[in-house]
Amino acid sequence: MPMKKSRLWNVLTADDTKKPYGMTQTHEIGRMPEDSAAVKCTDRIFLVRVGGYAEVLDAESQMLSLADSYPAVHEADGFKTEISFAPGVILPTEFKDGSIVIGEEEFPVITRGIGEDILLLQIEDDELIVFDRSRFLLYACIKGEFICGYVEV
């Protein structure tokens, strides 16, 4: 049996039966320590895996920060859409005040804002989703694994 990483991972990958869209590592922010890796989400925002946890590198401030350091926002509350992180797994999704419903599962979430176009969805300490509201692209670090996806336009 394949290892099931988390409830969120199982929802996004149809119980680990579908391989999620993979991400390309970036070499743009210089050499990373051995147990670290980074992916580029936008010109400004990079997700950096340090140990098993995801942190956010903001190219504007050159600061590596935990998601906690960004202000909580409620601008997407009520937004209903469909998202996909794996081929053939298209999930109805609703942003609520304090939670997000993906498929049939509800996850407590703190939504944080970076600038005008980036939302950070902080689900668990080691589960972070970046939502580029301009391109409707999604980037996630889930239990140390980088994946990407899209929001239905």
Partner: peptide
């Protein structure tokens, strides 16, 4: 419902990853 709208991009470049 109030929804978030995407930006407008040329042709089929909506889902283009960052440069």
């Amino acid at each position: 419902g109030e929804i978030v709208s995407p930006g407008t991009f040329e042709g089929m470049s909506q889902y283009r990853p960052p440069l």
